[in-house]
Design a protein around this nucleic acid. Sequence first.
RNA 1: GGAGGGGUCGCAUAGUGGUCUAGUGCGUCUGUCUUGAAAACAGAUAUGUUAAUAGCAUCGCGAGUUCGAAUCCCGCCCCCUCCGCCA
Length: 452
Amino acid sequence: MLDPKFIRENPEQIKTIVKNKGTNPEKANVEKWLELDKTRTDLSNQLEEANRRRNEIAKQLSGGNITDDLKEEGKALKQKEQELRNKLTEVENEWNEIAAWFPNVPFDDIKVGKDDTENPEIFAWRPDTGEIDKNKLGENMDSAKYMPDNLLYADKEFTPKHHIDILEDLGMADVAQGAKIAGTRFVYLMGDIVRLQKAVHAYIMNHLYTKDFTPVNPPLLVKEKVLFGTSHFPEGRDQVYEIKNEFLEDKDSLFLVGSSEPSNFAYGIDRVFKEEDLPLKMVAITPCFRSEVGSWGKDVRGIKRVHQFDKLEMDIICTQDQSSDIYNELLNVNHWILQSLKLPYHIVEKCTGDSGYAASARQADPEVWLPGQKTFMEVGTDTNATDFQARRMNMKYIDKDGNRKLCHTVNDTGVSDRILIAIIENYQQSDGSVLVPEVLIPFMGKDRIVKK
RNA sequence: GGAGGGGUCGCAUAGUGGUCUAGUGCGUCUGUCUUGAAAACAGAUAUGUUAAUAGCAUCGCGAGUUCGAAUCCCGCCCCCUCCGCCA
């Protein structure tokens, strides 16, 4: 949510942002909003004037000296007030509805681009030779030609396999049974792949504990306002599973979160933090649920895009001065994870056209190189939402001078289950086994995953 | 699912139709006093909105009665205690 005052004063800028971000201009209709805004102010002034007069009359009548004239005027005012309030509510609803579609203002240096093919690469790294010269980076996949052609950890040269083939050969994934009991894009993961997942989680959590993170187990079924708060609604409503049945205590629906981000940030709803208590650095490992509507024909093979997966997610509530540094700090966590797992990767900063997430003022995606598929796979997203989510969630802090200010929110994927794909495809061996990355061996209790 | 109690200004409480946006205590801030601190005394101390030190809104939420609602009616939410059921 943007500050109405800001919209009022910068309508042309909003139009540009709507265009650059590819937001539906019918929904994010600036002109219509401005019109409604005027009507709203007008109605609101009239209503306040009516209320003022009504209060005045009530005061005059207090103490029992009732006169019919004033009583009649009061009665008439009540009528008028009712009408005004109805109109105002109507206008305000529409006014809010449109404003809900205005995306956050991107930072000035964010590239204007049409889609992911124009995302600038800001960093690239491979385990054997280290960071790739920044001059060699470009857009999208331009650094691919500097990425390893072959598997870096293979015992000998062979044609790499797709992760799902490796998983099924090793008896660690059962897609067919998942589909049978829950439908397509549901999968059973079993055995060492699960142990590997737990190892990755433990490895990262131990690191984050030293960085002042608070582990959180949040609710995963939440009310609508939570998903509105993070801006998953209204834009991404179709991505979310709605739980609606007669057994809910509340009549309103609940929604299964697609990430712990909404749940974690909702911890700050209607709160006023003390400045010295910020940043509040939360980390949660939770299941995530996504309908994936609209991408039913995409990534159908394997576990890259499924309806349910686990994610280690970092969510930080901070002051306005802290968000940029926190954003970089989280990106450094991503660097640390991928480098210590010795996975080749690059990081792209999302251009306006690829940053569909309304709350985003800046976003970057770490993407791991898959030598077998000769492509990068997104494994996370670091997002600075500035005050966009905080305004929707009414999340504030009191600064040193006693002023109330909106918080900033920053969120980043630590790892999702996609990291398992990255590990398996990069560490596969000619005999079908998979090496365990060195740093995970103590957490895994073994150095290789083999067929039973 | 059944029975009862409760949600008021940071905290604790008072407040059953007008003098209540709201009293009192604690806390916090400022001042007086003091070398300084404490104590005592005096004053201040909610948020949102708006150009506004004026106005309006807000006593869990929503709707209603009334000229006028923290207070009355209706619906809902949340918390606590007990019983039942269950993971």
